[in-house]
């Protein structure tokens, strides 16, 4: 049967709007089952706040299975909390002890402005994908799926990168607020596949340059890899940099014009 944690001290960031001044508010959670997930603990807190006629804590969440990438909390200074390769929604209270103080903050990054409390706006990620994170393949007329064999190792490597859930933990964990891991994961997913070759250099240039518009620069701290719930390897950043450099050296845009 489940055990219960007692007297958790929660320090939660409250901010009523994007331009309002925020502050930490302290709450005590008298008792919670260790079978509860971290977000279920917040659900219990919020039910209590509604009971006291107060405003519940706003936070983003949806699938609670670690795949949609909606949840996003800094827990005791770590993006998605203390458990390795685990999104906040999959973190369970059995990772904590009675009497613990837990500090809960939103993602901290200039490119992710706060909407309210723990909720931030990550639409800059969408801008990066819109600029080139796709293979241009209009519906209809695709050749048979087995026409181009893809070696298993290539398909697996592409899949390793494609697992990115777009949560933004990499940006939140980065001291520079860089989005290199996110951008490079998508670039390497598509650039590794035979179907992605036609737009390989155009894609890389467009995505990197859009990324630079919104986010800080990478200085190889490696915090992103450590925070990534999907354990995407920092190696993808090297792949991105290589392709970006190539695209510039080859000056493909010039060649295509001549």
């Amino acid at each position: 049967m489940s055990n219960h944690l007692k007297n958790l001290k929660l320090k939660i960031w409250r901010q009523s709007g994007p331009t309002e001044k925020g502050h930490f508010e302290e709450y005590v959670m008298p008792e919670i089952s260790d079978e509860a997930s971290f977000l279920e603990m917040l659900d219990v807190l919020n039910e209590g706040l509604i009971g006291e006629n107060k405003l519940p804590v706003v936070f983003d969440h949806d699938c609670r299975e670690g795949i949609c990438g909606t949840c996003s909390l800094m827990i005791n200074g770590q993006a998605h909390g203390p458990e390795r390769s685990t999104a906040t929604c999959q973190l369970h209270m059995r990772k904590f002890k009675s009497g613990d103080e837990i500090v809960i903050e939103p993602w901290r990054a200039a490119a992710f402005p706060i909407i309210k409390d723990l909720m931030v706006d990550r639409s800059a990620f969408d801008r990066i994908i819109e600029s080139g994170g796709f293979i241009s393949a209009n519906t209809g007329g695709a050749p048979d799926a087995n026409l181009i064999p893809i070696p298993k190792s290539v398909a697996d490597a592409a899949m390793d990168s494609a697992e990115c859930i777009g949560c933004g933990a990499c940006v939140a964990a980065c001291p520079n607020g860089a989005a290199n891991l996110f951008t490079a994961a998508k670039i390497s997913h598509l650039n590794l596949l035979p179907q992605g070759q036609a737009e390989r250099y155009k894609r890389t240039e467009a995505m990197v340059e859009t990324m630079d518009e919104y986010f800080g620069s990478c200085t190889n701290h490696g915090e992103c890899e450590a925070a990534c719930p999907k354990e995407i390897s920092i190696d993808v950043i090297a792949l991105m940099n290589k392709d970006y450099r190539k695209s510039k050296l080859k000056n493909r845009k010039e060649i295509s014009r001549s």
């Binding site: 393949a137 519906t139 050749p143 799926a145 064999p149 398909a155 697996d156 899949m159 997913h189």
Partner: peptide, 13 residues
């Protein structure tokens, strides 16, 4: 399946 492979979905191989 044809369409999704053309788009770069990394199905198991």
């Amino acid at each position: 399946i044809d369409q999704m492979v053309a788009q770069g979905v990394p199905f198991a191989r």
